[in-house]
């Protein structure tokens, strides 16, 4: 068996205290949320933090609450709670879809949204939908509070822009645009969801009064060193009608601009094919919801 190596375990009950301990230990301490990633890494010896700071005793970080027309999701909110949230399901379909296929129910009961982002993995399921929803990440650190646009959080595989001592406290999603729709799909190694993404794709479309696409957002997991925003594909959609022809063209562009690598999970070529197919399918899904939203009842 692999046993955990000894480490110092802190269980602060306030954010200030947590930040203070983390900052004092400089890079040596790691925050712990659900532990579904960190504890696995520690058992396998991939991570050996001498100090671990449990965030779960800190109150108030596990709420989904309305703010200024938008929604604030605390860093300690579990994926299962996102899946169960009516607000998320109705207003943020891409994020909700992603929460339904992240790992398995037992993992979802532990795993948090903050941990998913804090991990900095390009394969994480939360970042692409959050990019599509235009989320901001709230960060608290020794220098106080700051806000980071979600697409600026990730710097490389396993690397975020968080300084030592900084923790994610929440993500804030603006109000969803009217006449908009969003979607998420992914494919794991076993052919479905419930698995780390070989490729994950989120798309959001907003339709204008003329029925054309006023805004489009496309973000992908596992096709680049960080969650990848397919800006060229997005640009190709703006001002166009939401038609199969334009979706197919945009999907092709997204697959071209993606920068996948080959690894033990999949080849770069296969990832590129998947990127095209999944972007096309999420665009169709998103358009379906946007059209529903645009049709007066």
């Amino acid at each position: 068996m692999n046993r955990l190596r000894p480490f110092v375990f802190h269980q602060p009950t306030t954010l200030d205290e947590a930040v203070r301990i983390l900052a004092a230990e400089r890079g040596a301490a790691r925050p712990l949320a659900g532990g579904t990633d960190l504890v696995v890494d520690m058992k396998l010896g991939r991570a050996r933090p001498p100090v671990v700071v449990n965030l779960k005793r800190i109150r108030g970080l596990d709420r989904i609450e309305p703010v200024d027309g938008g929604t604030r999701i605390g860093a300690l909110v579990r994926i299962a709670a996102i899946q169960a949230s009516a607000i998320v399901r109705e207003r943020y379909p891409a994020l909700w879809r992603a929460s339904c296929t992240l790992a398995t129910p037992p993992i979802r009961n532990l795993a948090t949204i903050g941990g998913n982002l804090g991990r900095g993995s390009p394969a994480g399921d939360m970042a692409p939908p959050l990019i599509v929803h235009g989320a901001l990440v709230e960060v608290e650190g020794p220098g106080g509070r700051r806000t980071v646009p979600i697409q600026d959080l990730h710097l490389g595989p396993g690397i975020t822009c968080l300084a030592p001592g900084e923790v994610i406290t929440a993500v804030v999603l603006p109000a969803p645009p009217p006449h908009g729709g969003s979607a998420f799909r992914k494919l794991g190694k076993r052919g479905g969801g419930w698995d780390i993404a070989l490729v994950g794709a989120a798309a959001g479309l907003v339709l204008g009064g003329d029925g054309a696409i006023a805004d489009a957002r496309i973000a992908l997991a596992s096709v680049a060193p960080t969650p990848f925003r397919a800006r060229a594909a997005e640009a190709a959609l703006r001002g166009r009608p939401p038609s199969e022809e334009h979706f197919a063209r945009a999907a092709g562009i997204a697959a071209e601009e993606a920068r996948p690598i080959s690894d033990v999970r999949a080849s770069a070529a296969y990832r590129r094919s998947l990127a095209r197919v999944l972007v096309l399918r999420t665009l169709r899904d998103a358009a379906g919801l946007a059209l529903d939203a645009a049709v007066p009842r």
């Binding site: 696995v40 398995t104 190694k189 076993r190 052919g191 479905g192 419930w194 033990v264 999970r265």
Partner: peptide
């Protein structure tokens, strides 16, 4: 692929 994260065994979902 020497971990169950990458050596995939069918689950109930499959």
């Amino acid at each position: 692929n020497g971990t169950l994260a990458d050596y995939k065994v069918a689950t109930l979902q499959d």
